[in-house]
Design a protein around this nucleic acid. Structure first.
Length: 342
DNA sequence: TCTGGGGTCCTGCCGCAC
DNA sequence: TCTGGTGCGGCAGGACCC
């Protein structure tokens, strides 16, 4: 039986900001966008004090500002959070080399090979992270990644939750389906339409029914996930498949020259990213989001792998010309896929 | 009225080659 | 030469994650 830990930092961005400026401790704090709640942007992280006002991740900053005008709004300092994140990941690797990075503020750790109760390991990890960074985290312990992730979310903040195969029925099945990794708003609504609101209710649906409704791959996933089944291994190393840059304009624009100029600038940045990381790519995709939020893409695959701004820009402009720019544009983006080591 | 930016994966469709 | 089945890559869109 595997023993998997899921480590999830509590309100990570907000906690990092509170640590470097203790005056912010105990105050409603919202991190997101440029830090100006009158501008376009969404909430990346809200402190627990801000969450009491109904503020949550992905909420427009303007909405957050209306809910709590006296909250402190700060811009995202990604470099600083990445630095702290790396420190935390290094601490985790000291406990087990089998670590899967899941974004900036969470990770899985396989401690199956360690001759010590996982609960004890988890307590040591929490203490070490607190000692070296001053930050709290929540940890879930389970026989697989799926359950460990659900567990870490059960007693936030500063939690430690153990789920075993024996208590899937009593502790997992009463939870709403939305708690399952991979079930978002659309699937939640579709399931509700079928009269399914909890994981336990999902677990009694026939496999064939789920495959018919959600397709072979996702249907089977839902069937297994609802039963707490997840054999997926920890991924300790992976290569990026695409890299991208996009920007939302502060106000929607209709001038083709402005759009083209922005696309050229994003192209330079993405080419620079690729050269620094040592990758070339072959599929260039341009993304346009119109003022009504309708989003379209146009892609072009070039014959030879490329990472120069000139080559990528030429393909990007071919794509841009294929758009009918009838409506105002709020976002333009570029992605280079099919990456290979240069 | 509001809805970021950086990713991954899946599905359906189409044209093409065999 | 025509027709149909099949597999595959490219493309577009969508759902989801942090």
């Amino acid at each position: 039986m595997r023993r998997i830990l899921h480590i999830d930092m509590d309100a990570f961005f907000a906690a990092v900001e509170q640590r470097r400026n203790p005056e912010l401790i105990g105050k409603p704090l919202v991190i997101g966008g440029s830090g100006d709640p009158t501008k376009r942007g969404v909430v990346s992280t809200a402190s627990y004090e801000a969450r009491k006002f109904g503020i949550h991740s992905a909420m427009p900053l303007r909405t957050a500002h209306k809910l709590c005008p006296h909250a402190v709004f700060l811009p995202v300092d990604y470099e600083e959070y990445a630095r702290v994140s790396e420190k935390i990941k290094n601490i985790l690797r000291e406990f087990s080399p089998v670590m899967e990075d899941v974004g900036i503020d969470e990770a899985f750790l396989d401690v199956s090979q360690i001759d010590k109760p996982p609960e004890e390991i988890a307590k040591e990890i929490k203490a070490k992270i607190m000692q070296e960074t001053g930050l709290a985290c929540s940890i879930g312990i389970a026989p697989n990644k799926l359950l460990a992730k659900i567990a870490s979310d059960m007693q936030k903040p500063d939690g430690l939750t153990i789920i075993t195969e024996d208590n899937i029925e009593s502790r997992i099945w009463p939870l709403p389906v939305r708690k399952l990794w991979g079930v978002g708003p659309k699937t939640e609504a579709a399931l509700r339409g079928m009269g399914i609101e909890t994981i336990g209710r999902l677990a009694v649906v026939l496999l064939d029914t789920l495959i018919e409704r959600f397709g072979q791959s996702y249907g089977r996933y839902l069937y297994e996930a609802s039963r707490g089944v997840d054999e997926s291994p920890l991924v300790t190393h992976w290569e990026p498949k695409s890299t991208s840059r996009e920007i939302t304009f502060q106000s929607d624009i209709s001038n083709w020259q402005d759009i083209a100029r922005t696309l050229a600038e994003l192209t330079r940045e993405v080419a620079c990213d690729m050269k620094q990381a040592g990758y070339k790519g072959k599929t260039i995709t341009v993304k346009i989001r119109f003022s009504d939020f309708e989003t379209h893409t146009r892609a072009k695959t070039i014959v030879k792998l490329a990472n120069s701004a000139d080559e990528i820009r030429a393909a990007a402009f071919d794509c841009l010309r294929r758009f009918e720019l009838k409506k105002k544009v709020r976002l333009v983006g570029i992605r280079v896929g099919g990456l290979e080591k240069a």
